[in-house]
Design a protein around this nucleic acid. Structure first.
Lengths: 208, 208
DNA sequence: TTTTATTGATTGATCAGTCAATCAAAAATA
DNA sequence: TATTTTTGATTGACTGATCAATCAATAAAA
């Protein structure tokens, strides 16, 4: 029963946090969502904090497995960059409840060292996924800058989504990030002379 | 006394929230920081929520006045774009406690309609400040996209800062955003033929 | 029987919010 | 001027609600 309950509780936590838009949810809420008593949640996780840690760990695991799969399917460095972008805005990740959950964890990271560790891992991983392929296309220093910029843009689009004010869609978010990459690859390309009339444009989503 | 106390409490709230990195601070904490009793805080604000609302309102007011001043000093559209960027990363705004406070309010916006309203105002204002000047340089549809992208990048750099993992400094953040603008202005410029050898580069912070 | 799963009941702590009481300064009155 | 009254500022003490966490008891399975 243990693994079943643990999974059910973690899933329930993610759901409740997403719906509520905050980590200020009670163990009772989570337990109810999972269909068990609050006491059982404590029995298996020891504390609320531990359950929350497991929850973010699960979110991260999911993202990683999606990324690995997408990366495996892409052949060229440029295609891998697009794959990383696409995974970041994948429907699951972009669901309002998921965004709300990420945001809640970002806030929590200000206090919980362990939560912060996980988010740093996420940030590093995103950056280094981008960096690896950018280095195949650009000098190292330019690659580093662009990786940083692209990661920031992805996170920014993601966060802005949470306000639901001017809902930029999934496709538009991807296009915006691709535009950034295309434009900076063109600007910072090491040998622009060799392909003047055909700048890097391996994807759609161009400016107008 | 009333205006004095109100200001002291709002400032104290901002400080405590920033330090603690969350809105889950007690009225006692805030009152202690302001040097008054918790009861007085309730007396003047009626509820914790109201005090929090006033606090975010104050944050926004500060940002707006900085922006207005910076905008007034800039002459050309391109210079105004740089001014908006610079204000976003101004030292006050970029202090860890301020970032933590913004983040906390973003999370709160998932539940508090009023908090959400304020953040939407912020998001719209940033976007439209950028858009106004971009429209002087580009066709409307390209301007809109780039405004969206730049706003996202600013927010993203800001959020990433909150993790303090790979502390991108103020200058680097500005440079990254400027690079984005420069690259996309060059790409999407309406009449690139007329100034081929001298693309828009009215600021420093270029690639490499 | 022993072990595992599960819960109801309870505890202790924390907080937002209330209230009646004090204090001080200003205003009114003598 | 001396006095009383009024008003606003301020607080300590208290209340009610909420919750994480505990634990002893029960049910079910091995």
């Amino acid at each position: 029963m243990e693994p079943v309950r643990r999974k059910a509780l973690v899933d329930a936590a993610l759901r409740v946090i997403g719906d509520h838009g905050s980590l200020a949810v009670t163990m009772s809420d989570i337990a109810r969502q999972a269909g068990v008593s609050p006491a059982l949640a404590h029995h298996y996780f020891g504390s609320k904090e531990q359950l929350l840690i497991e929850t973010i760990r699960s979110l991260l695991r999911q993202l990683r497995s999606d990324t690995v799969a997408a990366l495996r399917a892409a052949r060229t460095p440029r295609a891998r960059l697009s794959a990383v972008i696409r995974v970041s805005f994948h429907a699951d990740q972009f669901a309002p409840e998921t965004i709300a959950a990420w945001l809640a964890f970002y806030a929590e990271a200000q206090r919980s060292e362990e939560t912060r560790r996980f988010l740093v891992i996420y940030a590093r991983r995103l950056r280094s996924n981008l960096l690896a392929d950018l280095k195949a296309l650009l000098p190292a220093d330019a690659a580093e800058r662009i990786a940083e910029g692209a990661a920031a843009m992805i996170d920014g689009l993601y966060i802005r989504q949470s306000l639901k004010s001017a809902p930029i869609g999934i496709e538009a978010s991807i296009a915006l990030t691709e535009d950034y990459l295309n434009a900076l690859l063109a600007t910072a390309s090491p040998s622009p002379r060799s392909e003047k009339g055909r700048p890097h444009r391996t994807t759609q989503g161009q400016m107008t």
